[in-house]
Amino acid sequence: MIWQWISKLASLKFTLVVLVLVGTGVIISYRSEGTTTWALALPLFLFSLNLFAAILTNPVFRRQMPLLMFHLALIAIVLLVAVGRLSYLKGRIELAEGEEFSARLAEVEKGPWHWGQLDQVSFSNEGFTIEYAPGVQRGKTVNSVRWRDEQGTEKRGVIGDMVALSVHGYNFYTSHNKGFAPIFTWHPDAGGPSVAGAVHLPAYPRHEYSQAQTWTPPGSKSNVWVMLQFDEVILDPEKASEFRVPTEHKLVVRAGEERRELGPGESIRLPDGVLEYNGLRSWMGYTIFYDFTLPWLLASGVLAVGCMAWYFWRKFSVRPWN
């Protein structure tokens, strides 16, 4: 009885049904806005059952080593994708120049089995340059970073396009998101230490004409509205240029009814303290990715294709092409 069921699960006709279900799952996932993991998980589970059953029951796998290895590699891929989805982490952060990563992510998406060591990651953004071709076409990103490796040794290096920072299994990638960050120090009336903070203005040049942001200084209850104004052309559409902070600028700060234009070193009084403007820096957006299955997934994929090629080579070399 059980053997009959396994034989049914192993049939090529069932493989066809499963392939249609996987295709349907892909289309559902592609078209849906919400979470549709089930649409792919269910057919992939059936696919693994089909492969397992085929290996158990079909004698061709005993005769054809490449075919057996190909199907085993496919099972490994499905299992690794499942484990990867359960343990992955994908996130986004923004760090101003000189700022340390604090393990607080602006956006995060992770699997239920992600018990990573993000809080042990120590790295800081030491500034970046981005070349632009005429027409404001983004070119090479060169971002200097400082970090501590797994042994606690401090290291310095450069990341950017195609080069990520890898610490404790987490990969940090520079993104196209970057902009300007006015730096402040908050001196609370209630005493205690002064605290530094950065306002990350909207991404530049994408939001070139809306360089304003509402912000609450760390430890304060008052909101301020901050707007950056400058006249110089940073990214010239007519010629090659480089992303940089403007040499001359005005920072408009509005707190309640009061509106002030601040330069570096100037401050504004808020109901519960004094906010001092220290100067303008840049911020960089990073994408974070963690998935320990990646090297295994790659190895399984290469093994599957290699075995498929081996199988077809043997099959086709029996009879000439012409």
Binding site: M162, Y173, T287, I288, F289, L298, G301, V305
Partner: peptide, 16 residues
């Protein structure tokens, strides 16, 4: 299949 694998390697390096 090789195209999909090579594309995935590129995408991982380029866009995380």
């Amino acid at each position: 299949s090789l195209m999909l694998i090579a594309g995935a390697i590129w995408a991982q390096d380029a866009w995380g």
